[in-house]
Design a protein around this nucleic acid. Structure first.
Lengths: 107, 107
DNA sequence: CTTTCATTCAACCTATTGGTTGAATATGAA
DNA sequence: TTCATATTCAACCAATAGGTTGAATGAAAG
């Protein structure tokens, strides 16, 4: 994943409204108005959040007449998870090496 | 994980400089100057990035004389990964349900 | 004691976020 | 055609991000 794509993905995930929208889309596609309904903010504000999610390619838009139907694209989520997991593996590998070194030292 | 903590974690991860700092800290603790060395920006800028990482509790600071020694705290990383994984499980569960429904429909 | 080194604090700047309201656009329905 | 609905666009605003430079702090070294 290109760095800038990770930037967009992580930034998109850094807001509770957007995370809630993703969660909602997890159970199936929805229109903009439907997505906006639970939130105490204007439709326009939600529309902007959706654009942030689109920039990160976390959601896709399909037009059906005057309705815009949003659906989840899990790939960036996979790639974000992959980055985090890589860090954790690297980190624990180094911790293990440290432990082995300490064990040698204690001998 | 509280929503605001996830906000801070994800936001901290949404910048390549900060991700590089975390990666560096994966192989062991380091001083501020050491962390700043690879970057084409002022020490002050890196100092601010570190504060963002501290707000997310991704790094911890220990003072040793005039040096500040930073180390990784992987817990928020674990929690961010957990959030993402939860979404993915939920999403694939719903996809599976959809597939089963379609299979039933086709019968 | 003075100087150097490690780091932060403070002020400033510009760009971006996250929200608002009001107008525009485009489709659907009467 | 006219009216209502779904959505975006545009302008605006306050707060935050991400960078700069210069001054302050505090510990170490000469």
């Amino acid at each position: 994943m290109k760095a800038v794509a990770l930037d967009h993905t992580m930034l998109a995930l850094a807001d509770p409204t957007r995370r809630a929208i993703l969660q909602r889309l997890g159970s199936g596609e929805a229109r903009v108005t439907e997505l906006a309904a639970p939130f105490a903010m204007s439709l326009n504000a939600v529309s902007k959040h959706i654009r942030v999610l689109e920039r990160a390619e976390l959601v896709q838009r399909r037009r059906a007449g005057r309705e815009h139907i949003l659906s989840l694209n899990p790939k960036p989520l996979d790639e974000a998870a992959a980055w985090i997991d890589e860090q954790r593996r690297f980190w624990t590998a180094n911790l293990d090496a440290l432990e082995r070194a300490l064990a040698d030292y204690e001998d």
